[in-house]
């Protein structure tokens, strides 16, 4: 068949949209299922044929998880399950502090690498390689040391481990944004009388802001949803949301899907809210190398 330009375009567009549609279904279905399940009454959690959207939606899952209103028959849940708010507090505190530390020190290091070559390219790569180590490999020795240092089940312990494991990402990401800022702009500020700190504050930071915000969110998501380290380095006090979530899959209680779904939705919402607030920066920040000069 001899395709003219117009037909070619139609075929291309058709291919594009069908690919995107398939992708959307793959990504979207689990989300739909979680949201749907969070509104299902107990009986429909395991129903067969599956109930896609409940005919009798209920808020009891949310009430139960978040308000602690135990009105269901399943009463033998461990007490630890009654504290999602505490887990939310833990998660928020640990994630915000460790992410802030990571981005702050990452940016300082990245500035040094970008402007003064404090790390060679090989070192930079090694830094990233550190992150290739599966967390399970380091968690056993780490928990040993943590127990002697009294860091097990403490906020500080989790903050430290998150800060250090995400620092390589922070350095790499912020470096690419700092590289974008022409050296001459900084030099112009300096020769006009600005000190180094003044230059960083007035010129470098504002120009790297979108990138820093994008890095912050990226690392915040990583930390917020981290499970393995949190599970093994905490016991009862510093339980984070992902760990809390996992407790709804107990060997004795079976799976409490509806509650778990309600909690999952709760975990996701803060990230979506943050995303909405900073989407202006995200669009610019995640388009590496596209900063307008």
């Amino acid at each position: 068949m001899n395709l003219n330009k117009k037909n070619k375009k139609y075929i291309f567009e058709g291919f594009r949209y069908s690919t995107l549609t398939i992708w959307l279904v793959i990504v979207g279905f689990p989300l739909f299922w979680i949201i749907g399940t969070s509104f299902k009454p107990d009986a429909e959690w395991f129903a067969w044929p599956p109930v896609y959207w409940s005919e009798t939606p209920t808020l009891s899952n949310y009430a139960n998880v978040w308000m602690g209103k135990e009105e269901l028959t399943v009463t033998q849940y461990a007490q630890s399950m009654q504290k999602p708010w505490k887990a939310l507090g833990n998660s928020t505190f640990v994630a915000l502090v460790s992410t802030s530390l990571s981005v702050f020190f990452g940016a300082i290091l990245a500035y040094g690498v970008s402007r003064y070559q404090v790390l060679t390219e090989a070192r930079m790569f090694q830094l990233l390689m550190l992150r290739m180590v599966p967390p399970i490999v380091i968690v056993a020795p780490l928990s040993l040391h943590y127990s002697t240092l009294n860091l097990l089940d403490t906020h500080l312990g989790l903050i430290l481990v998150y800060f250090l494991t995400t620092l390589p990402y922070a350095v790499w990401m912020t470096k690419s944004f700092i590289d974008e800022i022409p050296m001459e702009i900084e030099q112009a500020a300096e020769i006009l009388g600005a000190t180094k700190w003044r230059t960083i504050w007035e010129v470098v930071l504002p120009l790297a802001r979108s990138g820093l915000v994008a890095t912050f969110l990226f690392i915040l998501i990583l930390t917020w949803s981290e499970y393995l380290l949190a599970l093994l380095l905490s016991k009862t006090e510093v339980v984070t949301l992902p760990v809390e979530l996992s407790k709804y899959e107990g060997s004795t209680e079976g799976r409490v899907y509806g509650r778990q779904a309600a909690l999952s939705v709760g975990i996701t919402i803060p990230l979506i809210i943050i995303g909405i607030f900073i989407r202006k920066h995200l669009a610019r920040g995640f388009s590496f190398g596209m900063v307008r000069r």
Binding site: I185, Q187, I191, G193, T195, V203
Partner: peptide
């Protein structure tokens, strides 16, 4: 900054 010099760059280097 202590040399009392002004410089105009090829790329203009405006903020």
């Amino acid at each position: 900054r202590d040399r009392n010099i002004g410089m105009v760059f090829q790329s203009h280097a405006l903020f």
